[in-house]
């Protein structure tokens, strides 16, 4: 708990505790991003800045538009209005693959392990700027063989770290749900991203693997990478995030360090009062508020 604060807390010393507050060194800036589905506003974000080198959590009750917001930022969905930029580069109308190439890599809520590829192939696939990925060069293995060997070495290194090395020649389909989450994170690292966006990294992961996943995410910050993640598990949010952004009904309603968030009256109302406009998912709704309260109690 101590080490978490020593390298990133100072980023937020002079940051206002208000939605859309200015950060010292933002890596991602979103401006008036909104998305409607048939008259229903799913996302309507006035302003958001994500601090470079920190772990930012994006929380909110179900249906708050977190995943839609992720999809918009990474180009998987198109907003009705809005501008957003990564490292100063405007990302409007940039397709997902180019977003990833720029150094902003995401994972998915439902894990997308590539089942009929082996674990190591999953890893090697993700490496950047592969010569052998060009159609013409693929026919001349001597032009890419050397790079391929390097990629495999790097893949194995990361797999060792993630304790997946024993599985490297298994099909990804043979992994457990938690191992697939780990693989997805490990694979994202092969892209050498500056910003990693994780969509519910803890969903469906057993407690034993949870801890190791947490460590890996903290480790990313130690390496100077930025993490933005969506999560329902408030324990995790409390433990590893430097900054928390709260969304409700498509809007950002609060921002601040974890401790300030759990005492924020608006946040509590958003979680508890979300019942009346979320008939669909009452179960997970109350789960979410329970989680939040669990966090408060700690």
């Amino acid at each position: 708990m101590q080490e978490r604060n020593n390298n990133s807390a100072e980023f937020f010393l002079n940051v206002e505790l208000a939605p859309g507050s200015k950060k010292m060194d933002p890596i991602l800036i979103a401006d008036r991003v909104s998305r409607n589905f048939g008259g229903l506003t799913a996302v309507d974000v006035e302003h958001l800045e994500v601090q470079r080198g920190a772990i930012t959590a994006l929380i909110g009750p179900n249906g708050a538009g977190k995943t839609t917001f992720f999809n918009l930022l990474t180009g998987y969905d198109k907003p009705n209005h809005g501008e957003w930029s990564f490292n100063g580069k405007n990302l409007k109308d940039i397709p997902p693959y180019r977003v990833a190439k720029l150094g902003m890599v995401r994972t998915f809520q439902l894990t997308k392990a590539l089942y009929r590829l082996t674990v190591i192939q999953n890893m090697a696939l993700a490496a950047k700027d592969q010569k052998g990925e060009s159609l013409l060069r693929s026919l001349f293995p001597f032009t890419w063989r050397k790079q391929e060997t390097e990629i495999y070495l790097r893949s194995e290194e990361i797999l060792k770290k993630f304790k997946l090395i024993d599985k490297k020649d298994d099909f990804a389909a043979a992994l457990s749900g938690g191992q697939r989450k780990l693989l997805e994170l490990a694979r994202a690292l092969m892209v050498e991203p500056e910003l990693i966006m994780l969509d519910e990294p803890m969903a469906g992961v057993n407690p034993a693997l949870k801890q190791s996943l947490l460590e890996h995410i903290k480790d990313l910050r130690a390496q100077g990478k930025t993490v933005l993640f969506v999560e329902h598990d408030m324990d995790m949010v409390m433990e590893i995030s430097d900054w928390v952004v709260v969304m409700a009904q498509g809007k950002i309603i609060a921002e601040g360090p974890p401790k300030s968030i759990i005492n924020n009256q608006e946040v509590i109302t958003a979680y508890l009062g979300a019942h009346h406009d979320a008939e669909l998912d009452e179960n997970s709704e109350s789960m979410a508020s329970k989680n939040l309260k669990g966090g408060v109690n700690q």
Partner: peptide, 12 residues
Amino acid sequence: EDEDAVRSLGKN
């Protein structure tokens, strides 16, 4: 296997 995953890894 899954084209969205491949997009997220920077492939066109």
